[in-house]
Amino acid sequence: APALVRAQSEQVIKIAYNLPEHHATGTYFETLAKEIAARTAETSVKLVPQTFPDGQLYNDTQLPDAISTGATHIGQVNLGFMAGRDAQLMRVWAMPFLYDTWEAEWAAEDSPAMRNAFATQLAKYDHQMLGWMAYGTVEIYTNSPVRLPSDMQGLKMRSFGLDATQLLSTLGASPVTMSSQEVYQAMQRGTIDGCLTGPSSVLSRKLFEVTKYGTNVAMMRLPFVASASKMWWDMLPEDVKTAVGEAAMVAQKASRDQGKADSERVADRLREAGVDVADLTPEERKAWGEAAAPLLADYKAKTGEAGADILAAVAAANAAHPAS
């Protein structure tokens, strides 16, 4: 456990995440840090946050463990790097074509069914869930045109994390594991045919120079989660917990707003950079939904009633915030 919290004291806390400061997830943590500093200035413990962006302290793979063990006080959780029985219910986060709109995603995430389920499951990993942030969408980038699921058959696709890999296998593609630094060259030389990633990283890693085709379908709308180390959290006085909780709400809104705005611009920026980005017809979208259906069926089978509750919340959110 971190150093004991003393009354009227000041405590330096570490906030670690894996993406750059200017990314919507970075905005979450930088806003969180600023808000925590401001809101705990007069509480029984004054928290002094110190942020570690860009995976400086821990990367995607280590962050869930780092939070569990108290090696960081607060951190980013990319759920794709958590697997095991207690993570099963949370797999809904990466189901393809789950949400129709950003607002539907946010409404579902904020519904008691989903929020409580995630908080409960994360607590089993000694995480105190603070809130959601926007990673953005995941799209398909390839060197051959992809409009229908059948176009994916036999493509060698770079993948990472459990969910993207399962989706690729379901679609008939061959998932390939390689370091993110090798993707550019592997795309350029044809070692792989494509990759599944966010449009923002296509820009930041200059993948647009070596990819010909992309999709603009919001195949997945990924949220990341912010968690605090539960060992630390449980020792905080109530007034400080309240202040951190309020800070987290402000950060969540800032991150979602930026995530949506970034996402609306990014397809056009990729087109300007020379990538053939496909907007799919409703029929084509439907074909993708059907191709990915086995994943959803598998999720339902494995999660039973708890999963059904979450999916009902998702359906309600989609009904309340339909695509115009």
Partner: peptide
Amino acid sequence: AFDRGMLSPTL
């Protein structure tokens, strides 16, 4: 990791 039945996030 043992207590929580944690698995590698791969196939």
